[in-house]
Nucleic acid binder design. Structure first.
Length: 222
DNA sequence: ACCCAGGGTCATA
DNA sequence: TATGACCATGGG
């Protein structure tokens, strides 16, 4: 029996995850004030950090009416750091938030900022200190509605267990495998990444195997 | 007490 | 180019 192709694994996994968890409707936001900027803030705050801790920081910013490019640009860096303390790395992240705000302030609005080809936007985002490949793609996919597939540590963990790749595969290599296997559809990309995170949070944090994981039967036995 | 989280940058060899 | 150190809180 021949082993399944990458495309088959990726499609089958999506079906099973969707069946198990349903629609995720990412990216989660608190309010409707500045949802796009709030998403961008969230992608920075959640870097290598549990979402719950990042979310507390966002709630803090919301209650101080700070989900605003001009205000983040102007706020005292130490005060900002104190407000986002729960997200960890608060000095770095305060600096990164201010850098992003300064960059976005060069445009009339976030909408205008995003109103360009994805490739051009991606390069520009990557040129900003504090934004790497995953953060850039998260911003593009969830704030910019661009079909950029987000690869994270969970994606590598899950799909290396499924025999699709090595655990330390290069970001863009794995991203290409997904893009080549799926219809280039923003909503599909959004849902898939969200489903991967949801599944990993529930079942794939602990080491060896994931009982009750919807992908358990597809994992390679070892 | 240890391990990990919805990463990224920078210095060194 | 490829590791390693560093950033830091909070939950299991």
């Amino acid at each position: 029996m021949k082993s399944p192709s990458s495309k088959e694994i990726i499609k089958k996994s999506y079906d099973r995850l969707y069946k198990a968890f349903g629609r995720q409707r990412w990216w989660p936001t608190q309010g409707i004030e500045n949802p796009l900027f709030e998403i961008i803030i969230g992608t920075i705050l959640t870097q290598n950090t549990a979402w719950q801790n990042a979310e507390k920081a966002i709630i803090n910013l919301c209650s101080n009416n700070l989900i605003d490019i001009g205000k983040i640009k102007k706020i005292n860096r130490k005060r900002l750091a104190n407000l986002i303390r729960s997200a960890g790395y608060y000095n770095q992240k305060a600096e990164r938030l201010k850098i992003v705000a300064q960059h976005l302030a060069k445009y009339p609005s976030i909408k205008v900022f995003f109103d360009r080809p994805a490739e051009e936007l991606r390069e520009e985002l990557l040129s900003i200190k504090g934004i790497g490949p995953e953060t850039a793609d998260s911003i593009l996919l969830y704030a910019g509605n661009k079909p950029c597939f987000v690869v994270d540590a969970y994606t590598k963990r899950i799909f290396s267990r499924l025999g699709l790749c090595e655990q330390d595969i290069d970001y863009h290599e794995l991203q290409k495998i997904f893009i080549d296997s799926l219809k280039k559809d923003v909503r599909l990309f959004q849902e898939y990444h969200a489903l991967i995170v949801e599944c990993a949070k529930l079942f794939c944090r602990k080491k060896p195997v994931c009982k009750k994981c919807p992908l358990e039967k597809m994992c390679r036995k070892k």
